[in-house]
Amino acid sequence: MISKDKYWKINLKYLIILLSIWFLVSFGFGILFVDTLNQIKIKGFKLGFWFAQQGAIYVFVVLIFVYVFLMNRLDKKFKEKN
């Protein structure tokens, strides 16, 4: 039960949340906070280094599929009403 405006607003909300996570794991964990995170070690990986060379990429993949899921659900609601 949503209008075009509502559809767009919800979409923008999703974008803001997902892109914040995108920014946090790459620019944040991978570069800005890398030294702090490097204090933590999991097996052979320093955590900051791991985010920069592995973790951020996994999160990217998950983010896109989460967006796919959210938007498919939103599309369905939108089409039901119209």
């Binding site: 991978g30 570069i31 280094f49 920069a52 060379q53 990429i57 990217f60």
Partner: peptide
């Protein structure tokens, strides 16, 4: 070298979302 790894994959998030 991490900037290349994250840079060349992170762009796809922008592509898919924006």
């Amino acid at each position: 070298g991490s900037v290349y790894l994250m840079g060349w994959t992170g762009g796809y998030v922008l592509l898919a979302l924006l």
